[in-house]
Nucleic acid binder design. Structure first.
Lengths: 167, 167
DNA sequence: CGAAATAGAACCGATATGGTTCCATTTCAA
DNA sequence: TTGAAATGGAACCATATCGGTTCTATTTCG
């Protein structure tokens, strides 16, 4: 159901926490505690984010993690990509041959890119700063965003945004 | 990695095929063959789409499936919702209590909606008609779309849209 | 030197997903 | 009227993936 992996979910929470004090470096232990995540998971995620150059790390006794860039310059898309790999909505866009066997026929073939592009833009249009800053009062968007989907309040199909855990 | 389930993937392919001849009703068997999908899978998917009122079905010997509405009035979001349930990007938005345990603390809490809204809009902004009609020449959008994410061609973070199967 | 931290890899269990199979029902035509 | 062609619906299964843990190595400072 187009769901975000837990990894990315948690990752965004952690990054958002760090974005509240972009200057300070916090150790994984306190990030874990403040975010109510297990230290193990937290460590794993932070390592991945650091390897993707979204965080800088300091080892040793007073070490920790800090954002590698200003929160305004980090997008949700980057975080997700760092934790879960490339954003791919379909298997149809295989780069080369050995595709789905109906490349020449598949009517949707060329247009998958529309969907991927739309999602990509949506995710790249939300910055960490936006996630962190205005706790509420989400209205016409703080205009801090580079460029967003217009996002009129209409509810086209009654999509219910609800829990993942709902079994 | 924010991936579309195979169900939705296939579903979109099938719907797109049907959108090419919105008037005609095609039996599952030919849809399966033309889309290179197993008859079983195809049947399953079409049944789900019919139950969601995106397709109308005709039983009996000369039966088949046809779009329930004009392709311009069916969005990708609807198809995905029909096949994979509600579009949910995070487990954080639990409707009621028993949440993640840090509701009051979680810095990202209120802003998850930004992401969900962005994705939702992106998906609801792509219609079946767009997926089916102009085989190529995707540029300023045929303006048939109700309202799209502006989708400038820039590549913000070098996201690679690639295969799912890549193990 | 030792404690506190990150780096990195391997490992494991559950479950969700892709896919199939079976049976019931409807419809039409020979 | 009977049977073939189609959809409706549910149950079932296997495996890949994902969430999560554990263990070890390395760095850094007091």
């Amino acid at each position: 159901m187009i769901r975000l992996s837990r990894l990315s979910d948690y990752g965004i929470v952690l990054m958002t926490r760090l974005a509240r004090e972009p200057a300070r470096a916090l150790p994984a232990s306190v990030l874990a505690q403040e975010s109510a995540l297990s230290p193990a998971m937290t460590g794993k995620i932070l390592k991945l984010l650091a390897r993707a150059d979204l965080l800088v790390s300091q080892r040793g006794v007073h070490g920790g993690y800090a954002l590698a860039r200003a929160p305004e310059r980090i997008t949700i898309a980057e975080i997700i990509e760092a934790l879960d790999g490339p954003i791919a909505l379909t298997s149809c866009l295989r780069p080369t041959a050995e595709g789905c066997g109906i490349e020449s026929v598949c009517p949707a073939r060329t247009n998958w890119q529309r969907i991927n592009q739309a999602i990509r833009d949506a995710l790249a249009g939300v910055t960490l700063a936006e996630m962190a800053s205005p706790p509420r009062n989400f209205g016409p968007a703080p205009s801090a965003s580079p460029r967003r989907a217009a996002a009129p309040a209409r509810d086209p199909a009654g999509l219910v945004i609800t829990s993942l855990g709902a079994k």
